[in-house]
Structure formats: structure tokens, C-alpha cells
Design a protein around this nucleic acid. Structure first.
Lengths: 247, 247
DNA sequence: CGCTAGCTTGACATTCTTCAACCGGAGTGG
DNA sequence: CCACTCCGGTTGAAGAATGTCAAGCTAGCG
């Protein structure tokens, strides 16, 4: 694959699109300067592998633009995605030298990287980064648990609907309103990657997408562009409790 | 159900069985004293519910003895276990007032509880508790990701074998050597709870247990006591990479 | 202009679930 | 003490959901 040149701007922290959601969210003044001093950007084209499971990984990073996937592969080739990293999500683990999962860019991607050792020093010496990292890790654990319900108990149709609703909500910046107030967005994953995410085969994904389309829950414009005329109707297909309840 | 009296001893921290694995692991001297000052024990009988999803929860806790399960339930009754808490595991989330999942004791259980507010204060004012909590949360996230592979891609037989191997390894204190060097332990879960853990029906769990027994991978003594004559044979049934690789 | 990657669709096979019957031990009331 | 019932578990038969294998479509690209 030809390595296209990426076109993401390399922002100053003050203009960074994930400034108040990423691991740096709570930092100000000196702490932010320390982070800024050790940061550098890396760009990847859609489809590129960032690290393989077991590889030495000497940086941690925040996703600035694009989407990355963590996947696990069994000996016989069965694959399961176990993490989907959207802008502001954190990649890597402090105090761990080697990657536990394969990491690939599923769209063009920009990472804001920190060399691991200086980052760990910062964790030990300051409060705000580790506090934010704990919050984010707890959030990811909650998300992982929702995902487990999906993998263990939902039907193929519910899985697809749930996936679409996650994408729509998780990266609100991607979403736009199409004519008539409907939601519209581009899928950041191929059918195969969706299958890996959902614990299905790509054929089943394709069939269920067609089925949702036939029933008017979604519209497909091209293969990747989705229009959702009625978000409530989509939510109804997810199998989740409709009444937001607690909040 | 009659509320039997629990028989777990209430240890001083210095004699606590989870002293160096729980959230308090890194604490010494003053920090430990602060924790000790706000701790109290609670006991639950097998089957009891600790909190329901959405309930106000004004404490966090470490599991001292026994096993607790986090489960999610869909409107139509489908249930998925999303967390299995063994001794030293942490229950609850700082800065969150309401429980996100149902929590139940699957065996007789002892918790070492901390009122949430003082615990949060400790998190803000000291280093060692939050550092340990971050480590533990990252470990749980890794475990959740292994679990996703299981839920999404493993066969029923592989799921059962994986579950058994997790139990054997995760709480090494439970396990004993039966005659002939075989591993032996008691299942901490009913067939139904195993089904909820593994994303199966209880009938499928029962059938696969019978099948593994028929093939000599496990022996069943009563319904709950398991003997594993050959651990490698069990591992081979899990579908996981056999060579431990990195470690 | 033909290839390829990504996707769709069909026919058939397989796995797991569903529904139902049954078993055995523990606790309970007569 | 015995019959009863309940709970957790096992097993069988039939059906539904999803996977597998195979063919074919389409858009973009060399």
C-alpha cells in the first residue's frame, strides 16, 4: 500500500481538538508545558498497523483524529476487536513495555505521542494526568462491560443497531444533520472490521445492514455513508432500555 | 432465605489475607492507618444481592473472602455477567453515586468497605491508593478484553474450558492438589451463573460439562467439585495460544 | 479496460437455544 | 417419619440463528 502523506494539522495544545477530553484534560500551566515538551505527532494511513501484540512499545498516545482498533487473534485466525479508540482515547499502558493487542488504524489517524518513560515520570510526580487517566480507564471499563452484554446476549440485528448508535454518539463531532433533521455519518470500519467488533461474520453483518435498510431504520448512500432518519427507531432496535433512567 | 450468620474472621490489616494485593497494597504507616480508620466489614450469604443497578451506593470495597458478580439485565430478562470479583478485587467506583450494575454474592462473601466520601478524600490527598487503583483498573480492563474474545469468538466447549482455567489460576488460594498431583477446586458459580458469565444457556453449559467429563478432561465429584487430572489438556481445550509466550 | 477490494446474496451446514421431561438431595410441614 | 416440594442439574428432540461456502456485483485504480 502506498504511504500517502497525511494532511492533519499539528496543533499547538491550546488549539488541540481533544484538549479537554484527553489524558491532558485537567492539566494547566506547568504540567501542560511538561506534557507539551515530550509530545510528538505520528500519522498513519487507514489500514496501517501501529503495533503488533508482543511488540515493544516505547510510547503511549492520545488519538487526535481518526479511529484505531485493538484486536486479538486466535491461532486459527478467529479475530475479535477488543477496543475501539476514537479521538481523545488513550493508547498504551504505563509500566508495560510490550503491547498486549494488535493496534491498527481503521481510518487515517493522527496520534499525539509521549515517550513512555518521561510520561511515567510525569505520572509519579504530578496529580492531574494520573487522575484523568484513572477516570478514563474506569470509563473504558464501563464501556467494555456494555460491550460484553452486546457480545454475549444480543442478536445480530441488535448488535448492528447498537454499533451504529455507539458510533453516532461517541464521536459527536463526526455527526451531521442531513436534510430533514436526520443524522448522517460515515462508518469508520469496513464490514469485516464491524464483524470483528461484533463477534459476527462479515456476511451476517452485510445481511443485517440490508435488513435494517429494507425496514427503513437506516439509509445507505454508497457503502459507508449512513443516514438515520429516526434515531429513536434505531435505539429501539438495539434492545437496550429505552428510558434513559438514571440521568 | 434465612440469613445465616457468617463465620469470616474480621482481621486486623496486618493479618488480612489480601493485604498485598488489594487497593491498599502499596500503603504503609499513615496511609494505612487512614484506611484502617474508615474501614468496616460486611458479610453476605451466597445468593444475596449487594446492590441493584441504579441504587445509591455510598461505599466502595475490597473483596476479602468469597466471590461476587456484576451482571447486566436486559428488559426481556436476558442477563450477562460483566465482572467476576474474587478476593482482593475492588468494588465500586469513586466519584460515582449510583451503581451501574447489579452486584450479587455468588458464594458467602466478606467485603472490607470504605465509605465513599472519605475514600475519595484519601484518593485526592495521597498517592499510593490511587496508584494501586489505576493498576488494578488497567488489569481489569485487560481481563475484560480477554473475556470479549471469549464471548465473541469461542465455542461453547472452549468457553467452559477457559472459564475453568480462569478460576483455577485467578484464585490460587482456592486450589488444592488432589491425589495424584491433579488440581481440584469447587466451582464458585451455579450452572446458571456460569451461563450468564459465558453468554450461553444453562443447558449448553451442562452439556459441555458432561462432554468434557466424558472425554476425561475434567472429573466431577458432586455437582460443584472439579478435579483436573491434566492441566495442559484443559488448556488445550481453551483455544488459547498454548505457548505462554512473553512471560 | 480489466483487476482487485469491499460488499452482497443465495443455499446449505452447524451450533446453540428452546421447550420439555426427568433426576436427586435438602429442607419442610403434617 | 414420610410425603412433598423446590432447587440445581441433566438429558433429549426440534427449531432458529448464525456460520460456511460459493457466486457474483460494483467502484475505483493501475
Amino acid at each position: 500500500m502506498a504511504q500517502r502523506q497525511m494532511a492533519f494539522p499539528q496543533a499547538d495544545c491550546s488549539e488541540c481538538p481533544i484538549r479537554y477530553r484527553a489524558v491532558c484534560a485537567h492539566c494547566e500551566g506547568d504540567e501542560l508545558n511538561q506534557l507539551e515538551a515530550i509530545k510528538y505527532y505520528r500519522n498513519y494511513a487507514a489500514g496501517q498497523t501501529i503495533v503488533w501484540a508482543g511488540d515493544r512499545m516505547d510510547f503511549v498516545a492520545s488519538v487526535v483524529h481518526g479511529v484505531a482498533a485493538l484486536t486479538q487473534t486466535m491461532e486459527d485466525g478467529r479475530r475479535q476487536m477488543v477496543g475501539l479508540l476514537l479521538p481523545s482515547d488513550f493508547l498504551g499502558r504505563p509500566n508495560r513495555e510490550h503491547a498486549t493487542f494488535d493496534v491498527t488504524a481503521t481510518t487515517d489517524l493522527q496520534l499525539c505521542c509521549f515517550r513512555r518513560q518521561p510520561f511515567q515520570d510525569l505520572l509519579s510526580n504530578t496529580h492531574h494526568v494520573s487522575k484523568r487517566l484513572l477516570e478514563m480507564t474506569l470509563d473504558e471499563l464501563d464501556a467494555a462491560r456494555e460491550w460484553m452484554l452486546l457480545l454475549g446476549r444480543k442478536t445480530a440485528r441488535e448488535k448492528i443497531a447498537s454499533f451504529l448508535s455507539i458510533i453516532v454518539r461517541r464521536d459527536a463531532t463526526i455527526q451531521q444533520f442531513a436534510k430533514g433533521g436526520a443524522l448522517a455519518f460515515d462508518l469508520p470500519l469496513t464490514r469485516e472490521a464491524m464483524a470483528d467488533y461484533l463477534g459476527l461474520t462479515l456476511e451476517t453483518v452485510s445481511r443485517q445492514m440490508s435488513s435494517l435498510k429494507k425496514d427503513g431504520v437506516i439509509r445507505l448512500e454508497g457503502k459507508r455513508h449512513i443516514v438515520i432518519p429516526d434515531f429513536d427507531a434505531l435505539m429501539h432496535e438495539t434492545g437496550d432500555d429505552s428510558d434513559g433512567g438514571v440521568y
